[in-house]
Design a protein around this nucleic acid. Structure first.
Length: 549
RNA sequence: GCGCUCGUAGCUCAGUCGGAUAGAGCGACAGCCUCCUAAGCUGUAGGCCACAGGUUCGAUUCCUGUCGGGCGCACCA
């Protein structure tokens, strides 16, 4: 990161001195093969056309200028069609340790977000049943993105939208009510198919009956209402507990009902109608989403007078922007992708350009045990709940599994695999690297080797040491990329790479010398910086960094 | 049928705003504990980046088409 910034600065000066604009398509990145140096630059290739010079000749000129421009640069080589390969001096890399030391838990953070207000909305499951494994994936991704965006300098709020106003809440009350009647022997008929089938419904009914045996004597609508209120309370408490157990945090719990009751939904519809974006037809109110690229117009208020979810979703998003968020990110299950065009149309219609709104689609989770698919039927009310999974494999393993994959690709989640402590399950690989660092530092303390301030970093000359230093330097860039691409797996992959280098270093070199010499101190400072960086990365994933394993 | 998305090693997956010989882990095979944590390390084998065209100095990456998997196409929630 420092390396890239430094090199880019030098190149900008040189290119501009030569009388050219710095090409936007320039890339400065670590080459795939280490033999090509620390960083490879393609600027000569990109600039060749404009300069009317062969790329290699141009590269020669740039290389000569680079060599003279910085004391940190050890060698500059031209290769292939005109790549400029730059190698920095060990001294430059060694400074990274001091940087990590001075920043500590803040190493990797930045002000890139400039304090922009961002709202990330995730999970938002209807409180009609327990969270399942798919919710868990969305929860992990949302929570981790919030951590990453905060670290990257955004003023980020984590929000949960509670759909507590619709028909399904009525269905919840009815389901519990009908279960209670059956438990009480007041009704023996077949339990309706359109009710929630899960065992948890019966549990709630049983509990309510125990608390108030007169429940089923109430008039039907009164009884159902009581069931709805209590049931939602119980289920929502469980959801909140599950999220706590999964180390997922929300700052704001936003109720749809509050939006409806305060008249903000109706007000939003009125505004749309006045501005001609909404129109009446066939007794229903329609949104002209086709004006914004959707393939058909969408209903806001049905001809029976009831509102669609779309109507309150528009009011909800308008409310978010009114609360001052310049960027709203929604995390949805991938089965909702057809909903994006109309939501984007809605956002545009309230005067917000595309970049102010993003949807992250999270693909379904395929739950396996030993490679065999576990049947999940929501209909029959049988599915593996998030709580069960956390209980079985632990929050750390589950989170790392979710966060190590692009959100947009399907995920096979094997319960047995998640418990294995092998490289198949890399959470332990990364955590073990951290624990190893801590173990060595502890042992050093026992032997009376003091780390602080001591140690001549210039003694870190081994290839494995320079590899670690280069990797440490990259961390801030990885965080920036993860934030920019809303991609948590950038962090996971980085951590696996860093952990791998640490393990290799550990096995090739003995860190703790037989006595407290300055090389030992330098090495201890290096691995301490590695441990700190791993801890910082794990924190972004919401995964613990154990002191020992 | 229309739309979105994915197709990379035997398996699970990275990489792709165009760059050098396409990477990792697992599995397979061969090795490493008198030594700071072997939950670790080293090495070998394994690829027409689904297929066919196009764009250009250069394509796994961008465009078009084909094939194959997933998902979505309600006055549902």
């Amino acid at each position: 990161m420092r390396a890239i910034e430094h090199l880019e600065q030098l190149l900008r000066t040189i290119v501009s001195d030569m009388g050219y604009a710095f090409p936007a398509k320039t890339t400065i990145e670590p080459p795939k093969d280490k033999q090509f140096g620390d960083l490879a630059v393609n600027v000569a290739l990109v600039l060749a056309k404009e300069a009317k010079k062969p790329p290699r000749a141009l590269a020669e000129e740039l290389a000569a200028a680079l060599n003279a421009a910085s004391e940190h640069i050890a060698t500059v080589e031209i290769a292939g069609p005109g790549f400029i390969n730059v190698t920095f001096s060990p001294g430059f890399w060694q400074e990274t340790v001091s940087l990590v030391d001075s920043l500590g838990a803040a190493y990797g953070s930045s002000a890139k977000g400039g304090g922009k207000k961002v709202n990330v909305e995730y999970v938002s499951a209807n409180p009609t049943g327990p969270l399942h494994i798919g919710h868990g994936r969305g929860a992990a991704i949302g929570d981790s993105l919030v951590r990453i965006l905060k670290f990257a300098g955004y003023d980020t709020t984590a929000e949960y939208y509670i759909n507590d106003a619709g028909k399904q809440m009525h269905t919840l009350g009815r389901s519990i009510w009908l279960r209670a009647l059956r438990l009480d022997g007041k009704c023996a008929g077949q339990f309706p198919e359109d009710c929630y089938q899960g065992e948890y419904i019966t549990d709630i009914a049983r509990e309510m009956l125990a608390a108030d045996p007169g429940l089923t004597g109430l008039p039907e609508d009164e009884g159902m209402d009581a069931c709805y209120r209590h049931g939602m309370q119980v289920i929502f408490d469980e959801i909140k507990q599950d999220l706590r157990d999964f180390h997922v945090r929300h700052d704001v719990w936003f109720s749809e009902l509050s939006l409806v009751n305060s008249g903000r939904v109706e007000k939003t519809l009125q505004r749309l109608e006045e501005s001609g974006i909404a129109y009446e037809d066939d007794g229903a109110l329609w949104f002209r989403t086709t004006d914004y690229g959707d393939d058909k117009d969408r209903v806001l208020r049905k001809s029976d007078g009831s509102l669609t979810y779309f109507a309150s979703d528009i009011a909800y998003h308008a409310d978010k922007y009114e609360r001052g968020y310049g960027w709203c990110i929604d995390i949805w299950g991938a089965d909702h992708h057809g909903y994006i065009p109309r939501m984007r149309a809605a956002v545009n219609s309230i005067g917000r350009p595309d970049p102010d709104f993003d949807v992250i689609l999270v693909q379904l989770v395929n739950l396996l045990r030993d490679g065999e698919q576990i049947a999940m039927s929501t209909r029959a009310g049988q599915y593996e709940t998030l709580a069960d999974v956390i209980k079985e494999v632990g929050a750390d393993a589950a989170r790392f599994m979710f966060l190590s994959r692009k959100s947009d690709s399907k995920l096979d989640f094997d319960l047995e695999l998640a418990k294995q402590r092998t490289l198949d399950n890399p959470v332990y690989y990364v955590q073990y690297a951290h624990a190893r660092v801590k173990a060595v530092l502890r042992r050093a303390g026992e032997r009376g080797v003091v780390v602080d301030g001591a140690g001549d970093l210039s003694l870190l000359q081994q290839e494995e040491e320079l590899d670690l230093l280069r990797m440490l330097d990259r961390f801030p860039l990885v965080v920036e990329d993860a934030a920019g691409n809303l991609a948590t797996h950038f962090i996971s992959y980085y951590l696996m790479d860093l952990a791998g280098l640490l393990h290799r270093y550990y096995s090739v070199h003995t860190i703790l010398g037989s006595e407290a010499d300055s090389l030992t101190s330098a090495r201890l400072r290096l691995i301490r910086a590695v441990g700190q960086t791993i801890a910082n990365g794990l924190e972004l994933l919401g995964v613990s960094a154990p002191e020992s394993m």
